[in-house]
Design a protein around this nucleic acid. Structure first.
Lengths: 193, 193
DNA sequence: TGACTTATACCACATTTGTATATTATGATA
DNA sequence: TATCATAATATACAAATGTGGTATAAGTCA
């Protein structure tokens, strides 16, 4: 099943990826030119266009590779526990994002504004769907809606946590989001009354 | 308080906006050149750069104007009802997005992938915060987390509804998301057992 | 009205982009 | 090893970008 790829292509693409990611550390994406990438990768500029229609396709491919590592980590985790245990969930998500350094810095930097965000969300949803469709007694449509709502909410709070340094302790955040996800707004209001 | 702006600038910017939005109907964003915009707006290309650093800044400004209409509609609505009544909420959101035609088509087309999404989310969150901070008896941090989770979840489901034509009836979606938002996953599981 | 400020137009330039063509180098295969 | 397929290169070119400098036009204010 593993597709055999021309070693010349593999070598070229790797050089482009390395050049690009190293440039990304030094400057903003919109300041990076294809000429620079080609020079650093030590390839002809035309060769770049043989593989990518432009820089955005390269970004997309790099992001998809990051998502791969995200998926692998998710598959090794206990997602059904993550649903009920917000502390486990956030420790899990943060460790995944932390392990793959580029992924975390990318996410912390851009959050919702990153094209990476919908990819992370999709990956999380797909994993949840495959795990939960067996465990929970819900029809598929209901489950889909529940996952959509839950996953988007959780990632939004994670994003808030990363971005807003002025927030209170992590414990409070996780406890709060745990109440909301399991018991909704009613549960939250009941707790605080 | 209304800022006095040079009528020449107002005229030029309006011409640029009109030219750009009309071009957006005809072709994809990444196919639109600044030369085209300048030609259609009947201005010098250099004049464009006097007001915008590039096409993305123009996009940002156009989006912010769309968000203005979103905010105005939100301010006229009853958000505290929207929290408890999902049918009212979805009718509200959809009518806002429908009224401003460009906004809705933009949202339906790109959803989470659009740079417009985080802006809509932010606008919704800010409106909610100002309305709920008086009505609900929650400390500010808790409220912030609740709003973050709730708003992201709701918009995610709205996005799902727009994108996935294979979903069941709108009634089922809204009923389901209503249960989740008010009673959480526990409430949903209880309902379906 | 006349003097000012500033936006726009016009022209020019170096850089980047995207593409095309022909040639060379490399990997796969018989 | 010789042959074939194709990836990479070298080179060129039209188009678009981003930025300068100067002149002209329009708006502002005394």
């Amino acid at each position: 099943m593993t597709k055999i790829v021309d070693p010349r292509i593999r070598k070229t693409k790797r050089a482009i990826h390395d050049a690009f990611t190293s440039l990304l550390v030094e400057k903003d994406l919109n300041k990076i030119t294809i000429i620079e990438i080609a020079e650093r990768a030590d390839i002809n500029r035309k060769t770049f266009y043989n593989h990518y229609s432009g820089i955005h396709q390269l970004v997309d491919e790099v992001e998809n590779e990051l998502i791969e590592t995200f998926n692998e980590a998710l598959s090794k985790s206990d997602l059904s526990r993550a649903i009920k245990d917000p502390f486990y969930l956030y420790q899990l998500l943060d460790s995944i994002l932390s392990n793959e350094l580029n992924l975390r810095s990318h996410f912390k930097k851009f959050g919702f504004n990153s094209s990476l965000f919908p990819k992370i969300l999709d990956a999380l949803k797909i994993s949840l769907m495959s795990v939960l469709s067996q465990k929970l007694e819900l029809d598929k449509t209901t489950l889909k809606i529940a996952i959509e709502y839950w996953a988007a909410g959780q990632l939004a709070v994670l994003n808030l946590w990363y971005k807003d340094g002025s927030l209170e302790s992590m414990d409070h955040i996780i406890t709060t989001v745990g109440i909301i996800s399991s018991s909704g707004l009613d549960g939250l209001l009941k707790t605080h009354s």
